[in-house]
Write a protein that binds this DNA or RNA. Structure first.
Lengths: 208, 208, 208, 208
DNA sequence: TCCTAAGCGAGACGGTACGTCTTGTCTTCCA
DNA sequence: TGGAAGACAAGACGTACCGTCTCGCTTAGGA
């Protein structure tokens, strides 16, 4: 069943319109009629395709992320070889750089909460898989905190690192950002500040 | 100029009403008339006191955080003695536990973006001061990443740790959470997973 | 050029559909899509045949009235022999009885104004001809009111008599209705009530 | 509870607006926004006062007819002294003349069916009372047709007489119209045409 | 008998009006 | 005389229906 070409075209117009408008005036301030007007589409037509603004946003994001997923290394997102910092994967930061205007807005007061947590949870799931993979790769290793806790913390770092980068005017290169973040993740703030902490022998007591 | 007692009372009613409603139906879904109705106040009266919903929210939060600020150790938020995990400060997690319903909503799709970033930036500022303090306390120490970058990353971890905790059903105690987070912050994911990373000698090239 | 059989069929389907729907839900409430849906025809197809609902209605009526016109005495509609009430023509009331459901709706709030006045004017024209014929048949007779005024008044009576009949539950036979109306028309309310009025010698002053 | 003055004012504005628009473009063609625009009132405000166009129309008419009811002779609408044609009541036709533009539209294709039958039924009820009153005034009189049938017929005449008058360009005076109609009602088309009919001795067979 | 033009189904679309909702202001009235 | 009550303007919402258009399929009727 080949989709009507007009339908595809209209959808693309709406998506482009939304993306442009997010940059222009922030997500929350956009009205459906802004989108349709700029797409040169009748307002009721919008509702033929999407329930609301959010559905259009997430449909657009899905497209964008499918594209991104191709770029990323299939596995090993989490474990990097700290001895070869130049090989640390920076495709996420490059992606962000490519859509800097978009993310600058979406990670500000003018963004969308749904977006924030949707992305957070999506990434956390990916991270968790990686973490579990990394841990189980080596036998006799016992994680000291729940993997999903760790995943959420790392995602929080990642997103806030990006937000800081954008607010800071993107003065660092994607590669630098990836490196800083990777080291920080793996070695912690102790390493980051240069302050030396003795490794304690603490393990979280079980909650169950 | 002693504020009219009625004025204070009306404001308190509005704040209580907002807080109750956030828990009930999520921040974004609340309408001014919901607030006034529950507070048993005329809708136009709302506008005598606050410009809009956000102003009321932040006014309420200011109250809440003033209270919180008292509880916290004045300084040293950042550097904890990892050898004495029991003395790690967990007042933030206790505070969250006290307002669990509130934060559960505010850190979900039904929360407020303004809140997220407002709090993030506020905390990041505090963290940054602590970091700078910690670093400059010991001479001959050179931070390996910009302090504000580190601050934002840590805040991201903190907030997402809280969100994870709440979503997870608060199965851990505030103390445990504080410890996990503290260790993770200071020692990094390497420590957290138990995987051993050789400390590389990498330092971020300057951007300026 | 013989009309495509499909075309004729489609038209008939649409007409039948309209007629059924008028009875079901009243003319004004019908939508084009109701008609096409019931006729099992695509909506755009409707517009290939008719400009709008009204055009379909009047096209359908034209068919109906051509049929009716056959039944009626060619002339003498107006003048009846009051001495032989049984010979008074009641074909209109019979026609109404045959389409009682239709007229009950069309002569109610759910009917169509266009229909009312279209029919009124059409009948008034016929009546007027009859009246003029009747008057000019006998020399030395001077009508006391303008013939078209009289025509409109009589049509008004006719239509309202029909409406009353239908609202009343059609408790009288078409013949009775025809007789009542005929007598009332010719002899007036004086006769109808049994009250005796002395015939005055009044004639309308000319307006020209 | 004295109605808010603004409320009264708004209602009046809406009514005036409706009346003006009916004359300008016909009732059916009027849209709610036309009404509010001309009244210089926000569209949603309309719905604060009236459910729809029809409710506004009938509310306006009620006002108009209360005024009219004052003017009319309290009783004896039906029976007039044919010997004194000058005393025939012509207040209805005068009322119509006062609102000629309005009625010209409302009694045309551009009017409202609801209006037609609402007015018809209202007047028929009044007429019926008069007829019953007239008949029962004189004992030993037996009406030859059902009083409500007669009432509807007479109303039909009345309304169509008015319509004819307006379409005819109001070339007759209200008084003349009242006289023509009165005579026609009471004496019938026989008298009107001048053709002489022998009074038959027919009475409608009972239907019960 | 084929073939070609017409009729038609399907459905996307622009357009227009609807009735509703919410906000923030402003007016009226009452305590 | 200040606040409650509530009318109102403004403007976006999501829906309904209209009339048009485009695209293929199918099929009737002329070649």
């Amino acid at each position: 069943m080949p989709e009507d070409r007009r339908k595809i075209r209209t959808r693309q117009l709406l998506r482009d319109s939304l993306m442009a408008l997010i940059v222009e005036k922030g997500y929350e301030n956009i009205q459906v009629q802004d989108i349709t007007q700029r797409a040169d589409v009748a307002r009721p037509t919008f509702y033929l395709h999407y329930k609301d603004k959010d559905e259009l946003l997430f449909s657009s994001l899905r497209e964008m992320y499918e594209e991104l997923a191709q770029l990323q290394r299939p596995a090993d997102m989490f474990i990097a070889d700290l001895q070869n910092p130049d090989e640390i994967d920076s495709s996420d930061f490059k992606h962000v750089a490519d859509h800097a205007d978009f993310y600058k807005i979406m990670l500000s007061d003018k963004g969308s909460i749904a977006f924030i947590w949707q992305v957070t949870d999506y990434l956390a799931e990916l991270f968790e898989k990686d973490i579990i993979g990394a841990v189980s790769a080596e036998s006799d290793i016992q994680p000291r905190v729940p993997p999903d806790f760790l995943a959420h913390c790392l995602v929080g770092m990642q997103i806030n690192a990006i937000r800081w980068w954008l607010k800071d005017g993107m003065r660092h290169s994607p590669k630098q950002m990836a490196q800083m973040l990777e080291f920080l993740c793996l070695l912690g703030a102790g390493w980051a500040t240069g302050v030396d902490f003795p490794q304690p022998n603490w393990t979280m007591p079980s909650v169950d």
